[in-house]
């Protein structure tokens, strides 16, 4: 038979069961800043945290030095060159020369492939990776 003292102790235990959990300010967060020694293909250390500002992050996404390098902006750049080359292909095929049209047709395919590759990299793969930011 449980006594009233035991019941009080059980009630007290239940009362403090929730408060035993640490608050968000007290919880420790694993931040892999250190270098484990392993390197990725491009020579960067694996799982190293890269700190940047929001401005630098958006600038990196808007950067497009050419159609092969760069980030999301290079998708639009490649798409623009694709349309230009497609128009030039049609114009040169009908009104200039077939052989010149073949050069523009080659460039049209090149810029279309650049667009697809950049979309797969910047939007799908790179954009799907995690980013930690202030709440």
């Amino acid at each position: 038979m449980t006594t009233i003292t035991q019941l009080r102790r059980q009630a007290k235990d239940l009362k403090f069961a929730d408060t035993a959990k640490p608050s968000p300010e007290q919880m420790s967060v694993f931040m892999p800043i250190g270098d484990t020694g392993e390197k990725m293909g491009d020579g960067l250390p694996i799982r190293a945290a890269d700190w940047m500002s929001r401005k630098d992050f958006l600038n990196s996404y808007f950067s497009a030095p050419n159609t092969k390098e760069g980030n999301a902006a290079s998708v639009y750049k490649a798409a623009f060159y694709f349309v230009v080359c497609l128009v030039l292909t049609i114009v040169t095929f009908f009104w200039v020369n077939h052989y010149i049209a073949a050069v523009f047709a080659f460039l049209t395919g090149k810029y279309w492939s650049d667009r697809v590759v950049n979309y797969a990299w910047a939007v799908k793969w790179y954009g799907g990776r995690p980013l930690i930011h202030t709440a």
Partner: peptide, 23 residues
């Protein structure tokens, strides 16, 4: 044991594309 009010989280994690599209 110390009773502490639950505070707002300091950091949040999301996808890079979502953050880009937000700003």
């Amino acid at each position: 044991t110390i009773t502490v009010e639950k505070g707002a989280p300091l950091l949040a994690q999301g996808k890079r594309w979502d953050y880009f599209m937000r700003y």
